[in-house]
Each structure stands twice: as C-alpha cells, then as structure tokens.
Design a protein around this nucleic acid. Structure first.
Length: 968
RNA sequence: GGGCGAGUGGCGGAACUGGCAUACGCGCUAGCUUCAGGUGCUAGUGCCCGCAAGGGAUUGAGGGUUCAACUCCCUCCUCGCCCACCA
C-alpha cells in the first residue's frame, strides 16, 4: 500500500498558502521565538540536498513550538548579490538581475515543495533596491561614526582578465579563468573598522558556562583564533652603522619589534624585518647609509613581491631571507650587536612587521638560524616541581641549590642507553649526579658514570648547552633540593668496567635500554625532555621556564622576568590581534553600490540619505575589463557634488555580499518598511534570534560580521541587544553515495526535486533527519530512503485500517505505557535537536501499534501518534488527521504531555551480573527494595550455579538498574 | 606545522550522568502472499564454538583506574574539518 504523496502534498501546500497558516503577526501576545535558517545564495544549480537538512530541523522545531503555544517567527529569504550570479550571467549572456530572479523563483518553488512553515510575507531579497537601500544607509551610519574609511590595500590583480579577483578565484597563484600569474596591486579600498570591536567580539566566546553564547564549541574556538589575541610587548632596537663605514654613527634610527616572549630577549641573536617594512625601503634609498649588498636585497624584494599569498603558504617549509650588510642592531637587554635580516616569514600586517629572533626558543627562528648559520643561545630552561610522593618538594623548608649533570651514555655497538634503576624508590632514569665545588662538569659526569655503573671509558660527543631545573626532596640526603641538570652526550668507547662498590650496588641496578624501552622506563617528568633530545638532537624549548644567560634576570621565572625586563629596558606592554579591518570594496557589478561621491573641490562626500538608494543601473556592460563596470555607466558615474553642485563622480565599487547578510535577520522583523531600516519596537519584540541553523562554513566570516553589525547597531541605539544569535547549531555536510563531497564533476549529486517526485517531501524531510545526528557529516544512501517511505506507508495503513492488522496478543494495557514513553522521548529529542532518535521512537511506536487489535483504544493511540508525527511529516499528518474526521487541523493541536503516573508504576528489568558479566535479568516493580531484589537475584537458577562455586565478596546494587555479585 | 573533532555489525547509526553494547533503519536469509516481482506480510540476522540449551571473545590498537569502561586517564594508529610563517 503506497499513499498518494503528490496529491496530498500539493493539497496541503496550497491550503497553507491560501490560508496564510504560518504567517505570524507582530501584535500577538504570549511567548515568542525567532527560529532562523541561514538564507541561501540562489545559485543556478538549484537547491542542494544539504539545504533541506537545516531547513527541516528548524521547521520541525518551529512546528513543535507552535503546538506548544509559542508565536514563532520563521522566515526565509535570499542572499542574492554576488560573484557567481555575475559570472553565470556573463556565461549565458544575460543580465545578473534577470538570472537572479530566475534562480530565486526556482529556489522558492523548491523550498515550498518541501512544506516548510515559513512566513513568506516576510521574504527578503538582498539584491532588491528596497533592501539594499538600507544596506547603503547602514554604510552611511558607519561612515558617520568613522567605522567606514578608505585606505590603500593590495588586491589580487589578474593582468590577463584586467580585473581584480576574489581570493577564491586565485588557484595556485593563477587566475582560475585565464591562468595568468596573479599580481598584488595597491588600490584604494573601503574598510569597515571591525578592529574597534575586537574586545567586544571576544566577549561571549567562552560559551554558556561562562555566560556566553550557546554555540558549538569549535565555532567559538575558530572565532577566538580568528581574532587571535596575544599579549606581549614592543621593544625598540637601535640600528647602528659601524664606524669603519666612514659615515657618522646614527643614533636616531631604530626598529620597533613585537614579542610575546620578552623573557627570551637575551637570546635574541638577530633581527628580522618584513620585506615591506618602511626601514628597508628607506635604507635602500638613503645613499648616505647605503647598505653594502643593496643589489642582493633589492633582488630579494622583487622576488618576494612576485609571490602571492598562496606561494608563501606552499613555501612556508623553506625559509628565505637576506642579510642587510653594513648595519647591525643593538639588543637592548644584552647590549650585543646583532645582524639584521629581511625575510618574508615576517608579515608586515602583524605586529610591527619586525621581530627579534630567538632561535633557541622559537621553531621558525630556529629554522632560519640553522639555514643562515646564526648563533643559537639558550636562555630559558624548563622547570619541574615534584608535587607527589616522598620526593615532593617541600615549600616551607630550606632550599639547597645544586649544579648537577645528566649523562646520556650511548653504546654504538647495540644502540642502547645506560640507565639506572633505584632499588629503594620507584625512580628510573639516566646517570645523574651533583657537580662538586670547582669540578668541571664533564669530569663530574664521567666520575658519576664510573661510580654508579663502573664504566671507565666514555667520551663526550656533544654538549647541547641545555639544562633543566628540578625541585624535589632528596630522600637519601634528606634535603630539599633545587637541582640544575646539565645534559651531556657521551659514547661508550669500550666495555671495560670495574666492579662498583657494594654501597652503590645496593642503591641501584645498572641497565642498558633501547630508545623504545626508555619510553616506558622513565619515571621522572624530565624523562620527557631526555626523549625529546634522543628524537631531535637540536631540541629547542619553546615553553616557559627559568632564565639563564640573562644577566641580573637569571633564575627568574618567565612570567616575572617579562615584567622586570620590560621595566629595565623600557619596553611597553601591548596586545596584538590577528583580526584586521574588513575590506568591503569589490570592483564588481552585482552588489550594492557604495553610496559615496567624489568631488574635486569637496573631496569624499556621502550620498545624502534622502536620495537613497543609489540604484544599480541595468544598462551596464558588466563584463570585466579592468575597471569597475559601474564606471562605464555615464548616467551612474557622472553626478553632481551633493555639497557644492560641481561636477563629481560616484564611487564605482560595490560592497562585499557579507555586508548584505550581516543584518538580514533584522529586516525580517519589519520587511516592508519603506521609511526606516526597521521599526525598533518590532525588532525588540522578536530579536535576538533564539535558534540559528546553518553550515559550519560560515563559522567565522558571516557569523563574526553579523555580531559586529549587531554591536554597532547597539551603539547606534537601533537595537537593544548586542548578540544576534543566542543559540547556534550547524548541520553536517551530506556526502554523495560514494562518501565523497557531492559535485557535478563526480556525478554524485542528488537532486531534491527527484526525491520529492518519487517519494514525497515528507519522505525527504524524514530521511534527512533520520540519517544521523544533525551536526555529523553523513553519506547519502538511496536504499535507506525506502525504509523511511515504508514507515510513512505503514502510518497511512494504520490510520485507514484498510488492512486489518491484529495479532493473537491483546496489548491494550501497554498502550498507555507506549504512549507516555514515546511522548517523553520525542519531546526531549526535539528540544535537543536529536531528530534521528525521535524518528526511531516513532517507528517503534508504529511497530507496536501494529500488534494492537483495532478498536477505540488503538484509535486514540493513533491520533496521538499523528500529533507527534505532525512536525516531521506535516503533509501526511494533515491528511490522515483530516480523514479521522477531526474538526481542527493537526498543526493546531496542543502538543501532548507525558502521563508520568503511568511511567512511575512501570516494572523495571534489573540486570543480574556475576563479576560484571550479565547472567540474567529479573523484573521487579519500582518500589521493591534492595534486599528483596538481591534475594530474588540470588534465587535465579543461572545465578545459583555461579554462587555455589565461589563466595560472594561484594554485592553492588544500582536501583532499577542492576545487581552485581563479585564472586571469588 | 598548529587547533578541533571522530573511529561501534556488511552499511547509516543507538547507548541518559561509568551500569544489560549493537535500539531504529538499510541490506541479507527463509517462509507466506502474488500470474509475476525491484510489492506487501511474517520470522531470523554482529562474530566464533554448538543441532540446541548454552558458552566465549568483541566498540581503531595497546595499557591503566573501577565491582563495572563505547563512556574516564595515558601511549599509539587512522580518518575528517578548520587555520596556516600571527612573533
């Protein structure tokens, strides 16, 4: 039996449209909720099966809320401006406006065919003048506030197409169209000053426990990383020209560097400037100071300039750079004269565009130093404080400081390392020992090796200049110790060995172990460092620690040292952010024109508000030629200055489409308003958005920009909240049947229209929800769809009772239990967005109802089922509900509540385990106490068997769950 | 390179806060229905031993904590996503 889905679905979609069933009034009283989907970009390809995944989730939720008496704002619209429409229009030789209108019509048709309960009266289209008028209005507000400004910035320039490219259009450094090598070109661009809001944007990102946003943790993390706050200091390094260059020593030249590790400054052995750093250019120009290898430097600058960002990424493994010969810098902490380099691993856009390089404590600097053979000076040494056990450091006792050695003795004959295992304590490590007064450390190490292990001939192979500090209680000497262990590498020359003294022998055992064995052997925390050294002989420590080789700051903790060093050398603490201002200019046609006019007399003038919108002209040749297409429209371009009336020209760039989508959710509250961007009262009623669902690809850009806009609007007094989306959930990607991303070229794209045609909208909705958890990435499985469809058919049959279904068992008594259980499960699952398990609960309910004889009781249970199913499969539910002769519609029903009494008196099945293994079950009513349950459990024949062969050591009882006998 | 997440039957997945692993669905097997089946119904179905009753091993691998681990801790492997020279 297969129900006529096409007929039913069309019937109800028409009903909902004709009766404006889901249109929501602003004036209704009672509880409100705003449930929002990320509006789609109406592409020419039409709806993708990924779209309905999120839409179905919010639709189920919205319908559920309405059945609970909540007024729900659930709108839909189109993010219609953008490059793809423009490119597609160029390809098919039509105007983007025409193409977009077609695409929107197609999208709207497809979305409507799925029966979502949107309030279509509130639809917005960001490319309509009625909408972008207010996008432009917002630009003017930003401009007034100083939040929109112009500056010169590099853009991706394609010399072949003579146009600016978006980052996505640059593939491996080439233009995706004509494959010319993309260049960086400076152009004057408009920016939004999002950096004024960095700290405000950082607020709320700690998640709900910290009173922040209820968003997926990864998204919050990504936003935090994107903003990239790091606290550090700015330090001036003086530049000196050596006296022998025959020129006067200059004292006024200096370079400001930013560092988060001021504690490592004594290890700064060179300075690096970004290629774009102003000092590089001025040094090259200034013939007085002319650096001796200027040609080499100039060549390097030319080379780097050619590189696009992508090249830099690819080449990030191999560092390049060039030394500025003829000048040096002075390390303000150590007073040392250090060389200066130009290298493109330093970005002009971050910090000051210059760094002090500390190769001993930074991986990138280390790599560079190795390549250019620069000195590596270790100045921070790791610190360990033992806190557990007998050897725990005693904070209130006197501290005895000792110099010590740690000998890594390698036997090349068998690739093993010399170790000692202490007999009295659980301590396993390398040969270590104290350095006596006046003793050389190499001698000390050799002496310890001899004393502890008897080996006579070891030779020093390397001194890594590395040490670590351990704070512990010396159990043999009964002293509170601070030991500084210096690491030395030795090799065993031969196995000649004396017997060790009995005292030593009683203390520890001597072992030879492989690197693999060492991993398990080390008992001490420092073992980790030893292993690091064995894996990487040049191991550098990038963490905090105690200072060394740092003059008066030696032995200070990193944190303390930063403060003291800053004070001494006059460094200024500073916070840096990765976040940069938002470049909104696009040298493209299909976007909202920037409402600015340039006058030779009056300069940059905002378009007067009353003349908005600045309409996008239709009669434009929008094909890319090298300048913004709008400059070619005389009627658009040539304009009078709003201030002096003289001949002026319009800004011809358009805005980034992310500007349009940064405020659309506000417009839904008052979409028809032609006098204002929106009525503040209406927005206050509905906003902020309670639930927002969309793809994780918008984690940073859209969601960050929308938050930024909201905060600006808050400051402008237009909204009374500062976060737009209180709760956010991402839908996971739906992959093709082959487990790969759906794409036309792979031929694994599923067209929703075909599924709706063949199985119906309800089946598609239900299948997409049943596939798995909403947020998971999951592959499409055509075969599984039929299972969902079969379920709906079974519901249809159940209601129609056409096919009489009974079994021998009469299960009337169980109906109420099933009903209560199902209501409970489905309700909590919808609340938690666990739609897949809600559907499986409904399936179980239907399977159960099939075993119940036809009659009044069953009829009531079926009605209950239909109500629960209504948010998931609205068409079928509406149809069968009507067929039952009900007066009101199914979506008007009140969501059922759980009869807790029924569940309370249920008997429970208690698992009976022996030694944690399930051996049987007993069924008891909930009020039966522990003693009785245990007695019953013991009487089970399966259990008796086990109890006879042993003695019960312990009995674990978990009420309503299990009994576990621990038997010996 | 850094950050985040995930590994459970032939497949998609379920398991609340540490308490009966594999719900629900697909697929598969058998039977019935049907002129017929790429329909419907009924029963069975993770693996190994066993006719069965029953027993054993099992949630990527190895170890640990616990009466009890898919769940917590450590080490490793694999896959996915995001960021990527951010000083």
């Amino acid at each position: 039996m297969s129900y006529p889905h096409l007929e039913i679905e069309q019937k109800w979609q028409k009903y909902w449209a004709d009766n404006k069933t889901f249109f929501v009034s602003d004036d209704t009283s009672g509880e409100r909720a705003y449930v929002l989907d990320m509006f789609p970009y109406p592409s020419a390809q039409g709806l993708h099966v990924g779209h309905p995944e999120g839409y179905t989730a919010t639709d189920i939720y919205s319908r559920y809320l309405r059945m609970n008496g909540v007024n729900v704002l659930h709108p839909m619209g189109f993010d219609a401006f953008g490059l793809p429409a423009e490119n597609y229009a160029i390809k098919v030789g039509k105007n983007p406006k025409e193409v977009t209108a077609q695409n929107i019509d197609n999208f709207r048709r497809q979305i409507k065919s799925l029966g979502f309960s949107y309030d279509w009266l509130r639809e917005v289209d960001t490319s309509s003048p009625e909408y972008y008028k207010w996008t432009q209005w917002l630009f003017l507000k930003f401009y007034e506030k100083g939040l929109a400004y112009q500056k010169s910035a590099p853009v991706n320039w394609c010399p072949g197409c003579q146009t600016v490219l978006a980052n996505e259009q640059v593939v491996a450094g080439e233009c995706e169209r004509c494959h010319s090598v993309v260049e960086q070109k400076q152009m004057k661009q408009w920016f939004f000053k999002i950096t004024d809001y960095t700290e405000k944007l950082l607020q709320g990102l700690d998640g709900p426990p910290a009173g922040g946003l209820d968003w997926p943790t990864p998204i919050l993390e990504m936003q935090k990383n994107w903003i990239g706050k790091s606290e550090g200091a700015e330090v001036d390094f003086k530049i000196v020209i050596p006296a022998e260059a025959g020129i006067q020593k200059q004292n006024d030249l200096s370079v400001k560097v930013f560092t988060t590790r001021l504690d490592t400054i004594f290890g700064a052995t060179y300075l690096v400037l970004a290629p774009e750093h102003s000092l590089v250019a001025s040094l090259l120009e200034n013939h007085e100071l002319r650096i001796t290898n200027h040609e080499e430097v100039e060549n390097y600058l030319i080379e780097t300039k050619k590189k696009t960002e992508l090249d830099r990424k690819i080449e990030s493994k191999e560092k390049t750079g060039v030394k500025l010969e003829g000048i040096t810098a002075i390390n303000p902490a150590s007073g040392e004269e250090i060389p200066v380099f130009v290298a493109d691993y330093i970005l002009m856009s971050y910090g000051t565009g210059a760094i002090m390089a500390v190769p001993a404590h930074d991986a990138r600097d280390f790599e560079f130093a190795k390549k250019f053979n620069l000195p590596i000076k270790r100045v921070v040494e790791p610190k360990f404080v033992l806190t557990d056990g007998d050897a725990a450091f005693r904070t209130n006792e006197e501290i005895i400081k000792r110099n010590a050695v740690c000998a890594i003795v390698f036997n090349p004959k068998n690739n093993k390392y010399l170790c000692v295992s202490w007999r009295a304590f659980q301590m396993h490590g390398l040969v270590t020992g104290g350095v006596e007064e006046g003793e050389d450390i190499v001698e000390a190490a050799k002496r310890e090796v001899y004393e502890e292990t008897g080996y006579k001939n070891v030779k020093l192979t390397r001194d890594p200049q590395f040490a670590l500090h351990t704070f512990f209680y010396h159990r043999v000497k009964k002293q509170n110790r601070w030991a500084r262990f210096q690491y030395l590498f030795f090799e065993l020359e031969n196995e000649e060995r004396d017997d060790i003294t009995e005292t030593e022998n009683n203390l520890h055992e001597v072992l030879w172990l492989t690197k693999e064995e060492l991993k398990k052997f080390f008992s001490v925390a420092e073992g980790e460092f030893t292993l690091n050294f064995l894996n990487d002989p040049y191991y550098i420590h990038t963490g905090d620690g105690l200072l060394h080789n740092s003059g008066e700051f030696d032995n200070l903790d990193s944190t303390e040292a930063k403060v003291k060093i800053a004070k001494k050398i006059g460094a200024e603490f500073k916070t840096q952010y990765r976040l940069r201002d938002w470049l909104i200019s696009r040298q493209r046609y299909w976007g909202a024109p920037i409402p600015i006019i340039y006058c030779d007399e009056c300069g940059t003038q905002p378009v007067p508000e009353i003349t908005l919108p600045v309409v996008l002209p239709v009669d434009v040749d929008f094909r890319p030629t090298g300048e913004s297409p709008l400059t070619r429209s005389k009627t658009f371009h040539d304009v009078k200055c709003p201030k002096c009336g003289a001949k002026a020209r319009r800004e011809s760039d358009t805005m980034d489409t992310f500007v349009d989508s940064s405020w659309y959710f506000l417009r839904y509250c008052d979409p028809q308003n032609s006098a204002k961007i929106f009525d503040e009262g209406k927005v206050a009623k509905w906003c902020p958005v309670n639930f927002y669902v969309g793809g994780a690809e918008h984690a940073v850009l859209h969601l960050l920009y929308a938050r930024f806009f909201t905060k600006v609007l808050f400051d402008l007094g237009l909204v009374n909240f500062s976060e737009p989306f209180l709760k956010l959930r991402n839908q996971g990607l739906i992959l093709g049947e082959d487990g790969q991303k759906m794409s036309k070229s792979r031929g694994n794209v599923v067209n929703p229209d075909e599924i709706v045609e063949k199985y119906g909208a309800d089946t598609l909705r239900l299948y997409e929800m049943f596939m798995g958890p909403l947020e998971d990435v999951k592959p499409w499985q055509s075969k599984s769809i039929s299972g969902v469809r079969r379920f709906l058919d079974r519901v249809f049959v159940l209601v129609s009772e056409d096919e009489l279904i009974t079994t021998s068992d009469v299960k009337l008594g169980e109906i109420k239990v099933w009903q209560a259980k199902t209501i409970k499960k489905v309700t909590s699952d919808i609340k938690n967005f666990h739609f897949n398990t809600a559907i499986s609960a409904l399936m179980e309910y239907v399977n159960f109802l099939y075993t119940v004889p036809v009659g009044e009781e069953r009829k009531l249970a079926v009605k209950n089922l239909i109500i629960l199913l209504a948010p998931f499969a609205p068409h079928l539910s509406a149809e069968v509900w009507e067929s039952l002769g009900e007066k009101n519609m199914v979506w008007e029903q009140t969501w059922p509540s759980v009869d807790e009494m029924v569940l309370k008196n249920l008997t429970v099945v208690v698992a009976v385990q022996v030694n944690g293994k399930l051996r049987g079950t007993i069924e008891v009513s909930p009020e039966v106490g522990e003693d009785e349950v245990v007695t019953m459990a013991k009487k089970l024949s399966v259990i008796e068997k086990y109890l006879e062969s042993g003695e019960i050591v312990k009995t674990i009882y978990v009420a309503g769950r299990l009994v576990n006998f621990v038997v010996k």
